[in-house]
Design a protein around this nucleic acid. Structure first.
Lengths: 203, 203
DNA sequence: TTAAAAAATCGACCTGAGTCGAATTTTTAA
DNA sequence: TTAAAAATTCGACTCAGGTCGATTTTTTAA
């Protein structure tokens, strides 16, 4: 009789996360207190902190699940015969859909993944490693199809696209872009620019 | 006898900012409480809030001053005869110097300017409008010298570089890059990529 | 079976950001 | 000059995140 404790812990953790999904959606992240969360999960406040170090960690755990769903969606999407550009647009459009519909979550997620505090670096890295795993194969295939220069380091290329995506999302957060489609168009243009180059080509 | 009030207010605001520079540098942003700040400025806690809405606003006001200094430095730097790439590198290197030496400030600054809360959008926009004013002329000159395609919207091009810079800085925050020079090299490479294009050129 | 060790639970407590309305200072205008 | 109005100052107060150690539950091993 040993797995009992583990089992209970898993159930408690789930209870917290379910309460989180419920309350965060209902009242928003900021307006949900840890006490609310504990009550909804049927446990004491202090217990929450033996499962998560900080409030934002609860949120990030929720995001990791969401990203799981998103990557599944993307992997299942049939992209056969699509250009690199189209594939990237499909991927980031899906990603942005989540952010667009959960702006508060999106803000925290972007803040934490791009500019984490020292203590949160680990969590943040895990999140974008997921991206790397998702994207590197895409880029390799593009290189094989000769859509992408072969002399470039893939991590840099990946950073390139990710940075541009980040910029488009940022423009939405700062109110420079408004609709979901505006943002998609913005990063599409930026990706095109990146592929073609900003300098004039002397052909 | 009417300017009296205004004068006093200006002095109080200065006192708060000076206390902020002092204490933030001394103990860091997080470890400086509003009460500390009020005490150092010789006023009551509540008064601080009639000058700034939130703690982070005090910080952003401080940043605006810093950026003033930085842009002056940049404008005074002799860039005659430099390529667009070199000019951009000079500019962003200077910008990053500040962030590198004040990581905590840098993090908040980047978080607030890229992913502001609704209430802070205005402040955030003011900050990057300053960038726009600084950069657009640079880009226009580059177009005139035929270093930059003329069919591109300048705001998009600007966003392009800014996004790449952001990415390099982010890689530093997440511990993927370590030294100041690593970051400079990273965004330099990204800028080169952007100018040349990621797709193979069929010349 | 049981008692000591280990792990998990809990809520009172601490701290700091931000609010509020009473008290004070400055301005206005008669 | 003065009294009412307007603006400013202030610190007690509220509220939420996070800590801590006393208590309870589970595991171990004898």
């Amino acid at each position: 009789m040993s797995g009992k404790r583990e089992q209970k812990k898993r159930r408690t953790k789930m209870a917290i996360l379910e309460a989180a999904v419920q309350l965060f959606s209902e009242k928003g992240y900021e307006r949900t207190s840890i006490t609310d969360l504990a009550e909804a999960a049927g446990i004491g406040k202090g217990t929450v902190y033996s499962y998560f170090r900080k409030k934002s960690d609860i949120f990030l755990a929720f995001c990791e699940e969401q990203l799981e769903t998103i990557s599944t969606t993307i992997l299942e999407t049939d992209t056969a015969g699509m250009s690199l550009l189209d594939r990237l647009v499909v991927l980031y459009r899906e990603d942005f859909r989540f952010i667009f519909h959960h702006p508060e979550f999106g803000r925290i997620l972007m803040r934490e993944t791009f500019f984490p505090k020292d203590l949160d670096v680990e969590v943040s890295r895990r999140l974008d490693d997921r991206y790397i795993d998702l994207l590197v194969p895409l880029l390799q295939k593009a290189q094989a199809r000769n859509e992408l220069r072969r002399d470039l380091e893939l991590t840099l290329v990946l950073g390139h696209f990710y940075g541009l995506y980040c910029m488009a999302v940022s423009a939405w957060f700062t109110g420079r872009l408004h609709t979901e489609e505006d943002v998609v168009m913005a990063f599409t243009s930026l990706f095109e620019q990146a592929l073609q180059g900003l300098a004039p080509s002397f052909t």
